[in-house]
């Protein structure tokens, strides 16, 4: 329950931040960090939910954009990386990048939460 909630909120937070023009590209990082503070999970689960949430956010957003664009650009940009022109790989890579950052941010948040609760 907590896990799913965490994933969904991370995902929504990631999407929300991306659609709001005034944050830098890493604006979702503090959001993932804060969510892990609020929703207490063991560090491994925190990382997993942060990773998954952001994978869905960035992966989802890029998939949506790519769909509207009928993959015109992604096929070309995929050749700039060793991805053999695969749009799917590019979307996955986008999701993974967001996911890793979301994961470590949530991880840090969960450790801080642990410290706080220990010190209470």
């Amino acid at each position: 329950m907590k896990f799913s909630l965490s994933v969904i909120l991370t995902m929504l937070g990631g999407i929300g931040v991306s659609l709001w023009a005034y944050t830098p590209w890493w604006g979702f990082v503090p959001v993932a960090f804060l969510l892990a503070l609020i929703i207490h999970q063991v560090p491994a689960k925190a990382f997993a939910s942060g990773f998954l949430g952001m994978l869905l956010a960035w992966g989802g957003l890029s998939w949506w954009i790519d769909w509207q664009n009928t993959s015109l650009l992604s096929k070309q940009v995929a050749f700039l990386f060793p991805l053999q022109g695969s749009s799917a790989a590019l979307i996955l890579l986008t999701g993974i990048l967001g996911g890793i950052l979301g994961g470590v941010a949530a991880l840090a948040g969960s450790y801080l939460r642990v410290i706080k609760s220990k010190s209470e």
Partner: peptide, 19 residues
């Protein structure tokens, strides 16, 4: 890579919808 892959700022923003 962060800003380049960001759906908010990066190359994805140049993927113009076909409509």
């Amino acid at each position: 890579l962060g800003s380049f892959f960001s759906p908010q700022y990066g190359f994805w923003q140049n993927a113009e919808p076909v409509n």
